[in-house]
Every structure is written in C-alpha cells, then in structure tokens.
Nucleic acid binder design. Structure first.
Length: 507
RNA sequence: GCCGCCAUCGUCUAGCCUGGUCUAGGACACUGCCCUUUCACGGCAGGAACACCAGUUCGAAUCUGGUUGGCGGUACCA
C-alpha cells in the first residue's frame, strides 16, 4: 500500500468504522474469527468503531442458536463490539431481517430511476443460456433479455403473477479500485452482465443488502475474506448508481488446510466452539490466527490482544493464503497453559474431567471413596494439575496426564522392571525404598528431602531404584519424576502404592 | 472455459515498496547431542526455501515481461 493511500485513513479517528458481518448459518468458523479479529484490530489500532451485523437474509439457513454461538465465541475470544446485537447504537437495528423496509425503499428507487429492471426469465432459460455461452468459451452472464421489455408487457406479467427478479443495469466499462492490501485491481464489467439484486421487491439478495447496510451504517473500511474480491466491483457499481461514497476495501488471504484446499469440515475442527471444546485457550487461538496472514516487522511471535492492537497494521497483511498448522497452535496453547496459576488451571481443566468416567471424581473437591479410603481437596487437585502443565498441549490432555493422582491405573508387574531387572530384584528394591520412606515423617515428605534420602539407596544404576519407584507411584510408562509425584501424593498414599506394587511382583 | 488474485525452508513468515549490508533471518515441525530412571521441559547443534525463463542493471529474492503452478469467483447462497 502506498504511503499516500495509507494517509487517507490514518487520522480518521472517530469516523473510522469497520464491521464484521457473519451470517448465522453455522458455528463461528475459525476463518471468520480471523476476519473478525483483523477488523477489530484495525478499529482498535486506529481509534475507530467496531460494528457487528448479523446477515440473516437467508431465512432457510439462518438460525438463532447460531447467532448466539457467534456472540458467545466473540466474548470468549475477548472481542467486544461497539454496536450490534445486545449493544444498540445509532445505526441499528443490526440484524438484516429487521431492516427489510430500508432495502425495499432502495429497490423502488432503483426501479423508478430505471437503474434496475424486472427480469421474468425462468431458471431453466437462464441455465440454458449460460451453458451455451460457456460452450463458446465466453464468460457466462445474463444477456439482457428482459432489459428493455415494453411497459405494457411488464404490467401484464406482473398482473398475471409471473415471478420476477430484479436486475441491475451494469455499465459497460472497466472498473478499477484500490485494495488496501493488494493495490489496484481491475475488472471488466461488460463480462459481468446485469446482476440480480433481489428476488421480487421484498426479498433482497446479499450483494444488495450488504451495500445498503455498509452505507447506512457509515462503514468506512470493508475488511473481508478474499473470496469477496470479485464482489467488490459489483458493489462499487451499486454505490455509484445510488450515489453512495465508496468505502475502502481490504481483502484478506484465505486460511488453507494442509492440502492447500479451503479449510473445511473434512480437515477436522473448523469452528471456534470445537477448539474451545478441545481445550484450547482463547489467548492461543487469538495469537495463532493473528499470525495467519499478518506479521510484524520483527521476530516477535507472542502477542496478547492488547499488544496486537498496538502493533497491527493492515499494510503488513499477507497476500498469499496461509496454511493452518495445528502443531503451531498446540505449541502456543502449551505456552499459554504454562502462564496460568495452579488455581486458574484447575478451574479451566476440571470441566474436562467430567467427560471421563473414571476421573469424574477429581472434579469434586470433597470426593471420598465409598469406603472413605481417599479424598482430594482443592489444593491437592491444583498441585496435581500444575505438574502436568509442561506435558499438556490442551486442557483435554489433563485427565489422561494426571489420572494417576486420583486412581492408580491398572498396569502389568513387568512395567516395574528397569532394563534387565528380575522380579525378585524389583521386589527387593521396592522393599528397601519402602523402609527408607517409612522413616521420613509427614512434614519432611518433600521432593528435596525424599530425593536426598533415597539417593542413599542408589547403586551403579540409579534407574534400578527410580524406575520401579516411579512406576509404583504412577502406574505409567511415562510420567513426571517420582519425588515430585510423591510429595503431592503424600506419605500415606505413597506407602500404599509401593505396597501394592510389591504385591504385584509376587503374583 | 472465462475473470481475478497469488507465488521465500515441510508450515507460519522476516527481507521485497526505497536493488548491493542475504554465503536469505526467526518461529513451529523434524534430526542429532547434552541434561535425565521414563516422558516432557530446558540447552546446544543440524538439515531445510528465493517456482521457472527472459529482460533491465556493474549488481536482482528485491524492478519488468512471460511461463508454470496454486487459490478464489463465475447462483434467484452468503
């Protein structure tokens, strides 16, 4: 973007207005979320207003619960809006389904001025036409069959109840506009034909409605996905015909799946909701999608929302599509997981335990076995979860990672053997460890003291002590170190587990 | 098919506008080593890219043209 061009919107504080306009026909998509984020960042970076508009003109596919999901996902991500549903402003209502009178007014105006006309062609006729043009290697477009129908015939058709759509008279000219990200872009409007803007007078189509709303809501900058690039010249024609000012446009690169196709359901999770359910943190998702198609000039990779708002510049948005790399998201998620305090982590992770039957009890701070043999308080749970943080990619990983703190998983006696150890040797070592630990009092049961005392038992290969101990306590092939586990478990549970392990070696 | 957009490591990208400082930098991933009872963390090291062909220029990842490839759009969806 040229500096002169950039100067046009810098300093627009107060009058700069952007919008995010989702249609509630599904859960908020990760790609839409990025578009929403970039709009939000642009508004915050330039002191503008951020408008949320619900595009629910498609009555069959729009659903209220999807709208609710979009709003909830926004809140969860930390994106607020200045005007929109739940936040009325000067230019409401903010649902297109509530603005139909407005659209009708403009359709009538266009019809009166003969800038648009009624088209009575049937779908079948249109299809035949476009097939024919395609076979000749031409761009399929409307041929203008109804563009100059005699007034008499129009009236007869209307009186006869013949269905019609409304078409815009497309000027025969080349149209160039400047995209904030891509620079000058030209289209030949003669190739487009007269586009449909409404089904009848009551049922406006998306391209028309968007144009009207952007004007009525005084949107100064339209930042949207690249798939809308070819819609832009059509909207500009509409704006010219209606005498509207033309907003600035910016088209964001697509988010691609690893196979470089458009990210879709078959590639896995696509909605914010699914990522939330899988245990991703909003901070990680924001950081991740911000870097999909945008990058600051330096090497910094970690950003909070506020930092992004300070650094964001539309001039640094990428032109090429960006592949969605889950591994990178996982890494970021782990990073933000590690920033949580133990109590924050517990609050975040506990809901994920409810989904796993055997560990459900961990969710209950005051849980005790039916025989009263064990219980877990909040502090215990927090310490257990904190220990798993560096191994967890997602919140959903915690139950598996920390399960042994609440219930020793079943394991084979063979797992207790370090390298070539024989069962008798394992039993012997476990017994020695047992005697050593028994002599340590409850207050001294900390990882440092434990490590120091047990070190007296080490032979040439300390694995012969540490491995059986660790497996006895965790029942797992992979886990944190034995002393870290032991401190959290506490003396009683530790001795009990070692005893169980010794019994296992005798079976 | 037609129209439009795009093109630096496997991936996200810095550099490109304002040619030389680029034997192309960072991060994720990968490989090896160190730490280490295991896994993970951490530390160190390594492999890995300017799509291709012309042109301009003393000099091109950077500028121009073309080729190839990818993506998007081609609805009475949004």
């Amino acid at each position: 973007m040229s500096p002169a061009y950039q100067a046009k919107f810098e300093g627009m504080n107060g009058t700069l207005r952007v919008r995010f306009a989702p249609s509630p026909t599904g859960l908020l998509h990760i790609g839409s979320a990025r578009t929403a984020l970039f709009n939000w960042l642009f508004a915050r970076a330039h002191g503008g207003s951020y408008i949320l508009r619900i595009e629910d003109t498609d009555k069959e596919r729009s659903r209220k619960d999807y709208e609710q999901n979009i709003l909830e996902s926004f809140k969860w991500l930390g994106l607020d809006w200045d005007e929109g549903p739940e936040k009325q402003g000067l230019y409401g209502p903010y649902r297109q389904s509530e603005r139909t009178a407005l659209y009708k007014k403009y359709i009538e105006q266009l019809l009166d001025q003969d800038k648009a006309y009624r088209c009575f062609c049937t779908k079948e006729e249109l299809e035949a036409q476009s097939r024919e043009m395609e076979s000749r290697g031409e761009a399929p477009r409307y041929r203008g069959t109804c563009s100059h129908l005699p007034q008499k015939q129009i009236e007869t058709n209307i009186a006869g109840g013949k269905p019609f759509i409304i078409r815009l008279r497309m000027p025969n000219k080349k149209l160039t506009f400047e995209d904030m990200i891509r620079g000058k872009i030209s289209f030949d409007m003669a190739l487009t034909g007269d586009i449909a803007i409404a089904k009848g007078e009551e049922d406006p189509l998306w391209i028309f409605v968007v144009t009207i709303d952007d004007y009525e809501m005084k949107i100064s900058h339209v930042i949207r996905a690249e798939e809308h690039l070819s819609n832009t010249p059509k909207q500009i024609v509409l704006q010219e015909l209606l005498g509207f000012p033309i907003p600035f446009y910016a088209h964001l690169p697509m988010i691609l799946a690893p196979d470089r196709a458009k990210l879709s359901k078959r590639h896995g999770a696509t909605s914010i909701q699914e990522y939330k359910d899988a245990g991703y943190l909003p901070e990680a998702i924001i950081n991740f999608i911000a870097l999909l198609g945008w990058h600051p000039s330096g090497d910094k990779e970690l950003f909070t929302l506020d930092e992004l708002a300070k650094e964001f510049s539309i001039a640094r948005v990428q032109k090429a599509g960006a592949v969605f790399n889950v591994k990178r998201l996982d890494w970021l998620n782990n990073h933000y997981l590690r920033k949580k305090t133990p109590s924050e982590l517990a609050a975040l992770a506990l809901p994920f335990y409810e989904k796993t039957e055997t560990l459900r009890r961990a969710a209950d701070e005051t849980y005790a076995n039916s025989d009263g043999s064990d219980s877990f308080d909040a502090a215990y749970v927090e310490k257990a979860l904190a220990l798993a943080t560096e191994r967890a990619q997602k919140l959903a990983d915690f139950p598996e990672l920390t399960g042994f703190f609440f219930l020793v998983p079943p394991y084979e006696a063979k797992l207790l053997q370090w390298r070539a150890m024989q069962p008798e040797h394992v039993r012997e070592q476990l017994s020695r460890i047992m005697r050593t630990l028994e002599s340590i009092d409850n207050q001294s049961f900390t990882q440092d003291i434990l490590a120091e005392r047990v070190s007296g038992l080490y032979g040439a290969d300390r694995g012969e002590i540490l491995w059986p101990l660790r497996v006895a306590l965790s029942g797992k092939q992979f886990s944190p170190g034995p002393f870290e586990i032991a401190e959290i478990l506490g003396k009683d549970r530790v001795l009990k587990r070692i005893k169980q392990a010794i019994q296992k070696t005798m079976q």
